[in-house]
Amino acid sequence: MKKLWTLCAALLSVVSVASAQVSTSPPKMSCCARPTAGANATEVFAMLATNEDFSGGHDAPLPYTYEGQGEMIEFKTTDGQSAKAFEIKSNVRSDKYLFVIHEWWGLNDYIKKEAATYANELKGVNIIALDLYDGQVASTPDEAGKLMQGVKTERAEAIIKGALLYAGPNAKVSSIGWCFGGGWSLQTALLAGPKAVGCVMYYGMPEKEVAKLKTLNTDVLGIFASQDKWINPEVVAQFQKDMAAAKKKVTIKSYDADHAFANPSNPKYSQKYSADAHAAALEYLRKNFKLKG
């Protein structure tokens, strides 16, 4: 109970004064309770980096070098700076784009490999793996936690907006991400406005403001783990309620697994569930991109 209290306290910004005065029976706190105004969903999730259980549940990625198709690109961002991303262009001219958003490790070679997998499976779609860490990549959980905590919302949004401008005015954009990137996948769909045609989020923190969810131009596929202590079933249930209140469609696939079950470098990796989730994501993206075959 003490660990749960500590974790939820890190996720929440305030506790009511009345509740704080009850010393004998502390109030039940939900990890899906709303944070104070000004702290968005991705910032709340970043607070988990201070939790030892969360950090300890992520083994450092094994050494890996990607040597396949694709190249690093640079584009202007809406804050007057520039950003880099890993791009694999479609072999035919296309306005369809899949934005791939990395985990808390950063844009490493594993993410480039994942981008290449989708490039091979989604013919006619341009793949862009965004770099929300501005070139920094972590090799240990401690480094990853610091990088995730260091992300400024305004900068991340400027990078995403810059990528949307790079894609062009006629772009049809879907997004996919895991963990840290799962939350930012949903934020990307929100920022994309009418360009958004799809959003897949793996065990990422959902947006909690119904007013924002009402602006979504696409449905959402949410992939979660029932054993996840952080993005837990209660958080997922609240997300479903919020999406219903916003009159938006969300499809939830929940697996009897733990957080980051789709990451091969994670000790809780499940090959079975990972394969099933990938198949579901692929089917969803093909449908939303209106791809043939």
Results as ranks from 00 to 15, higher is better:
35 P>T: 02
182 G>W: 00
152 K>D: 07
288 N>K: 10
252 I>H: 00
155 R>D: 03
106 G>F: 07
139 S>C: 10
164 L>V: 02
182 G>K: 05
159 I>K: 08
104 W>Y: 08
76 K>F: 15
54 F>C: 04
264 P>M: 10
207 E>Y: 04
171 A>W: 01
118 Y>M: 13
23 S>T: 12
242 D>N: 10
41 A>K: 06
12 L>N: 03
293 G>R: 09
65 T>D: 13
273 Y>K: 08
287 K>D: 13
19 S>A: 15
198 G>S: 11
24 T>Q: 15
62 L>E: 15
136 Q>C: 14
155 R>M: 01
111 I>N: 01
227 Q>V: 09
224 F>P: 02
128 I>N: 05
275 A>P: 05
44 V>W: 02
187 Q>N: 14
53 D>S: 13
257 A>F: 04
107 L>I: 05
203 Y>L: 10
190 L>C: 06
3 K>W: 13
69 Q>G: 00
184 W>I: 02
231 I>L: 11
287 K>H: 10
57 G>T: 01
252 I>Q: 00
74 E>D: 08
280 A>W: 04
6 T>K: 14
107 L>W: 04
219 D>G: 13
250 V>I: 15
138 A>L: 05
270 S>P: 00
26 P>A: 15
188 T>G: 05
63 P>Q: 07
25 S>N: 12
71 E>G: 11
292 K>S: 15
196 A>Q: 00
146 K>T: 02
233 P>L: 14
242 D>E: 11
155 R>C: 05
9 A>Y: 08
129 A>V: 01
217 N>G: 14
244 A>K: 11
280 A>I: 08
206 P>M: 12
265 S>A: 13
125 V>C: 00
141 P>K: 06
117 T>N: 14
201 M>S: 11
268 K>V: 10
267 P>A: 10
287 K>V: 05
112 K>D: 11
234 E>Q: 13
